[in-house]
Amino acid sequence: MSTSSYYVPATSKWPIISVIFLGFLAVGAGMLMTSGSGLIPFLIGFVGTLWVMYGWFMDVFKESQAGLYDAQMDRSFRQGMAWFIFSEVMFFAAFFGTLFYIRVFALPWLDGEGAKGVTALLWPDFVATWPLMTTPDPSIGGPDAIVNPWTLPLINTLLLVASSITLTFAHHALKHQDRKKLINWLVATLVLGGVFLVIQGIEYVHAWTELGLTLQAGIYGATFFLLTGFHGVHVTIGLIILAVMLVRVLKGHFTPDQHFAFEASAWYWHFVDVVWIGLFLFVYVF
């Protein structure tokens, strides 16, 4: 705080516009799921939301470049981002909790083990295994096979870990005013993340069409796609954020002291990376 007066940002039209488009998005999605119509409001909402994010962030960048934000505003942004990531952690915690509950409690009970083993009277032929290839009611149908963790998933793990490292190098370059290195490492990160997504897509197609591993393939398919799917969405968001950072870097934004937007995207990317490590261990390997 160089002066003791507070900085309060100006009003902005973006929040209210964004609320309107989110409303379109929700109503469109609801209509798509219930009646099949609703593509138009959904697309309006989707495109509109993207537009709003672009506009809102551009305003923030302009203000940031104009030097309007003081140290206090910077701290507010930092804390806001940190708590936002904490909320994301809890979002994934719910899904990991689901996975553990199913594996540790529900399936053994259905198979006749543990405190509620009497349940097996209802499913006399069921055998609990993980991965669950045959569901308690066989008509639901489990997957025919599962993804081998030591093929594409391992490559993906290495890609993401590598991308975290390259991003850290980029950050160091930024701190040392080395624009060229910064750009190179940032591009490398983007490429690694992009390849990760492509491989994930290939794996999904393979799983869905050849392994019979689908959302409907019992609880294994459900948890598999829930965890990897939401992780994939987060990778995509992270890539978009990093791409925006690249554009800003190319425009000459950020200084060694003031580059919180860059740091925030790095936090987010590391978070996505850590989630993947958990996924690799508990969804694929164990």
Partner: peptide
């Protein structure tokens, strides 16, 4: 805790519209 609510209602949405079996014992859920 609000994200946990978001997570669980998302799982409901999947059970309703996409045929998952998080809350259905027949598919191994509970």
């Amino acid at each position: 805790v609000m994200p946990v609510l978001a997570g669980v209602i998302t799982m409901m949405l999947l059970d309703i519209n996409f045929g998952t079996s998080f809350f259905d014992a027949a598919g191994g859920g509970d």
